[in-house]
Nucleic acid binder design. Structure first.
Lengths: 165, 165
DNA sequence: CGGTTCACTTGTTTTTCACAAGTAATTACT
DNA sequence: AGTAATTACTTGTGAAAAACAAGTGAACCG
């Protein structure tokens, strides 16, 4: 028994293989929520505002866990609650998420203030180190706000730029 | 008339918006082919070895063009041939593709030699500059090989590492 | 002019998605 | 203890998208 998974690979290209796991509309959003928004539970993801369906969410969580990108653990004091968490493999997706964020903010009309995102692009390594540090230390506070307001507007609340002046 | 597209956005988050355009199994592969493999035509993409269906390919090319990521132009000496090319918005996806490549090579069993990919990760800025230079100068030679062989094997041919020692 | 190439389009079947509802295992309330 | 909430799902159904197979029209080739 050599092969571990049953699925046939389209090719050996690492980009292609990454996209077989991540190439859909939802997986990287769940990862983003875990990575920078402090969400942990099924219900959190449902309420994250993107409108994922429950069956699709359950399926994506299953696949991400099967791929070793997230783990699930029941909470100690309320065993109904499952807490999802990124693995090391999962937190290693931070550069991918960051580059998608930068590209989107540069080229599309988004709710993220361009100035802040450009600052993050300039401080790329620092941002990635901070995201990883929070993951390691299980810091539960969201690193980025929800970007749900009007596009280009200044985000109040303790945003990244303000916290790291 | 303010709105340009008819589609409703899931949210204002730039990651989400990027994924609305790029979040599927094929779009970023086409972009990769244009970016580092020197492919230009419909037929090239069909033969790139991933096995995309013709109707899906036609649809993705249409969408990518509509999103301003690629352009299509008929070849001068054979007007059947349409040459696709990345726009500036398209070449700006190079960091995304590179990070997917690095992540895949690190965490999955791929056909790309890990050593070469780690070297690319170390030389990130140089790699990105070179990819962009080739795009600007319309250099048609592929930057990366096809990674179709056995996993982890040393790639012969003029690979990136050898060309940039 | 017939034959080939290129870039698709047009069915058809299979898979996935979205939406609505329901369920089992807790935990909370009285 | 009994009933109601809460949580993390599953199940059913119709619509949309993808995979697969075949066909079409314009451009070029001899």
């Amino acid at each position: 028994m050599l092969g571990k998974s049953k699925a046939k690979r389209r090719s050996g290209c690492p980009v292609s293989i990454s996209l077989e796991t991540l190439g859909d509309r939802w997986s990287l959003l769940i990862i983003r929520d875990l990575m920078v928004r402090g969400l942990r539970t099924f219900k959190d993801f449902l309420r994250s505002g993107e409108g994922i369906a429950t069956n699709v969410l359950a399926d994506r969580l299953r696949r991400l866990e099967a791929s070793g990108i997230i783990t699930a653990e029941a909470e100690h004091f309320d065993r109904r609650r499952l807490n999802y968490r990124l693995t090391e493999k999962g937190i290693d997706l931070a550069p991918v998420v960051l580059e998608l964020l930068i590209w989107g903010a540069r080229h599309e009309h988004t709710a993220a203030p361009c100035g802040v995102v450009e600052e993050m692009a300039r401080q790329r390594e620092h941002v990635l180190a901070e995201v990883r540090r929070r993951w390691q230390e299980r810091d539960p506070s969201p690193f980025l706000p929800k970007f749900s307001g009007a596009s280009g507007s200044a985000q109040r609340s303790s945003s990244w730029r303000e916290r790291h002046k």
